[in-house]
């Protein structure tokens, strides 16, 4: 992990308390680990994508980085400062540097506020209301490509794509260095999805932003992210540069996700990696490699021995038998 990283996260854990006293006495676990030891770094001007299915811990991880969800262990360094343990009243200036775009473009805007008020709100909250707010609102609308008359509209008068642009404008209002975007294009039509991704890419280039994007849409990742990580049960199973992961996934779960993407070609022959069984419960994590219950390539060792985290090519993966590699790892023992 390089020192000039804007954000570096090391061995981060986030716990949630579950059940009550009775279930604890009955010997059931009292906590689940939604994020269970995750490390990554985002360099300035780069985009990092978190991919994974529902319940894999993507959103919890993002909320922990932003301080909305307390971490239970690990380290989060942002612009050289440790964020774990920062008291609540010191978060405000940090959040000015690191802004968040929430899921659901329309739902994340207050229905009672006009676009003008929505765009002025960040300045008011951060005590910058002495600035010429009207000029700031007009500047932001222009920045995200909305006509100035939109200032007087309300969220219900906006289409999904327009509402998302307002969300982007709010996120970049105070010149942050990092944007955390949770499913920025979910629920948008494909023709509009492209507009939003183009806008994010433009702003990143023009303002030198870094981005942490959370998505379950792999096609989006390929178009926007420099690096990516695939999450499963709160851990990274594969992490590395985006393009090599798309062309040569090493972890069977990554390969299965990539192969599960229906492609717009009726004649395409699918060589799918089918994933049997359901996602295990966080209350009852599988032994050994946690993916072994669904892995089509699992062997005996996978059910008992936790695979080490190793570098394969440029990617860091957690698997006993990585795919697309000639070199068998030392851990693979006799087969």
């Amino acid at each position: 992990m390089s020192d000039d990283a804007l954000l570096s996260v090391a061995d981060l854990h986030v716990h949630f308390r579950v059940g009550g006293l009775m279930s604890t006495l009955a010997g059931q676990p009292s906590h689940i680990e939604a994020v269970a030891g995750v490390s990554f770094a985002i360099e300035r001007g780069r985009t990092f994508a978190l991919v994974g299915e529902s319940g894999s811990g993507k959103t919890t991880l993002a909320r922990a980085v932003n301080g909305l969800q307390p971490a239970s262990a690990g380290s989060i360094r942002f612009e050289g400062r440790e964020l774990i343990g920062v008291p609540k009243d010191e978060w405000k200036p940090i959040r000015r540097r690191m802004s968040m775009m929430f899921q659901d473009p329309v739902g994340s805007l207050s229905p009672r506020l006009s676009v003008r008020s929505l765009l002025a709100e960040p300045f008011v909250i951060h005590g910058l209301s002495r600035r010429d707010l009207n000029a700031e609102v007009m500047r932001l609308l222009a920045l995200v490509g909305l006509p100035s008359e939109f200032a007087d509209r309300y969220p219900h008068q906006l289409s999904g794509g327009q509402a998302r642009r307002v969300g982007v404008a709010r996120a970049v209002a105070l010149d942050p260095v990092l944007i955390i975007a949770d499913e920025p294009t979910a629920g948008l039509d494909v023709s509009v999805q492209g507009e939003v991704l183009n806008l994010l890419n433009d702003l990143r280039d023009r303002m030198g932003l870094s981005m942490l994007i959370i998505t379950h849409n792999l096609h989006v990742v390929r178009q926007i992210a420099d690096r990516m990580a695939v999450m499963y049960l709160g851990r990274f199973v594969e992490e590395g540069e985006t393009e090599p992961i798309f062309t040569k996934p090493h972890h069977p779960y990554t390969a299965a996700l990539l192969s599960a993407n229906p492609e717009p070609d009726p004649d395409k022959v699918h060589n799918r990696i089918a994933l049997p069984a359901e996602v295990p419960s966080l209350l009852d994590r599988p032994s050994g490699c946690e993916f072994h219950t669904r892995c089509p390539f699992a062997r005996d060792i996978c059910a008992t021995v936790v695979p080490p985290s190793t570098m394969v090519g440029a990617s860091r993966i957690t698997c006993h038998f990585p795919l697309n590699t000639e070199l068998r790892l030392a851990t693979s023992e006799s087969i």
Binding site: V190, H219, V220, Q223, T242, N261, P264
Partner: peptide, 10 residues
């Protein structure tokens, strides 16, 4: 428009 059609970063 479908990004699934693009096999490389556009």
């Amino acid at each position: 428009c479908d990004p699934a059609r693009l096999t490389h970063r556009a």
